[in-house]
Each structure stands twice: as structure tokens, then as C-alpha cells.
Amino acid sequence: MNLFRFLGDTAHLASILVLIHKMHTTKSCRGISFKTQALYVAVFVTRYLDLFYRWVSLYNFFMKLFFIGSSCYILFLMKTKFRPTQDPAIDTFRIEYLLGPCTVIALIFNYKFSPTEILWSFSIFLESVAILPQLFLLQRTGEAETITTHYLAALGIYRALYIPNWIYRYFTEGVVDPIAITAGLVQTGLYIDFFYVYVTKVLQGQKFELPA
């Protein structure tokens, strides 16, 4: 564990808490893509299967439980309590276009051709693009509640911090994980446009609005 990764995980944890807080305080999941949230459940469940056969640390164990639990809780809230505030008509990204290619790529690029390793690769690739339905929804509506942008910013920071983590690990432990690094770079790249608007508008106290 190093500081970059710890802060990254903390940002990830914070993003989820911000999202749950947003839903409870505004009593709404407006502006949140159900598809993206469902993809995160798939990501966590397929990646953390190793809970059953690999022990890393107490930290790792509880974080995994939290990510699986909280992502399922968010889906549950979106399907029950806040269902009326959800608008499927604008959440129209076709996730088949993500699931299909990620499956194929995971079958080609993995560290071992075994079910759990293929699922691990799949989860890494899927995580890198899981935010797309959310960004697509944002693009369609052209604006977002400030709290929703904080959620996205925290998610982006989480991913961005994993990059110095990998550089640090390369020099201190000699660890290089090409699958995680490639997918991580793609994932971070997807946030660049969002971050530009976030920094130039939201952090200046303005509303998040995309140029027409």
C-alpha cells in the first residue's frame, strides 16, 4: 500500500458516499445513470470473487465488501424508493456495446485462461468504460446538479491517483500489470472532458453546464 493508492481508494469510497448522500438529501436519483450503476455491480461482483479464495488484508477484505454492498444498495434505492425520479428515456446508452467487446477482450487478454482470471480481466475492462452511460446521460441533458458533479469528480480522482500508484509500484516493487494499467489509462482519459468543465465552472461556483 502506498499513499497514492490509499488516497485513490478513499476518493472511491467518498464518491459512493456522496452519491448515496445526494439521493437521500434530494430524495431523487435524477441525473444518475442506472446503467452505469448496474455495470459497477457487475464489475465488483466479477472482480471480488477472490474474496472466496484469496486473502490480501483486512483493509482489502472490508473495502471489497463495502464496494459490493454499497453498489447493490444504490441499485436497490434506484429501483424502489427513488424509482419515480429516474428517467429511463434519457439513460439510453446501449450497454451491449460495452459488455460484448469487454467479454471478447477479456478472453484474449488475461493472465491465465481460467474462469476467475477471465472474469477479473473482464471486470477491469468493464470498469474502464462503465462510466460511459453516465457521461452520455450528462451529455444529453447538458447540465448536472452540483452534487452529481462532485460524485463524478471523486470517481475521476480515484482513477487518476491509481496512475502514480502504478509508477510508484514499478520503482519500489517492480510490479507492472499491463491489463490494469492500460484499462486504467483509458478510464482516466474518459474523465478529461468532464474535468475541464468541472474545474472551469463548478469549482468557480458556477452551475455545471455544457456548451450548447
Binding site: N60, M63, Y162, G174, V175, V176, D177
Partner: peptide, 10 residues
């Protein structure tokens, strides 16, 4: 001896 997996990451 480079190690090629980060299975200890979240």
C-alpha cells in the same frame, strides 16, 4: 523479476 499482476489492488 517483475511481477505481472496487481491482484492485491481494489
Amino acid at each position: 523479476t517483475a511481477q505481472h499482476t496487481c491482484h492485491d489492488e481494489l
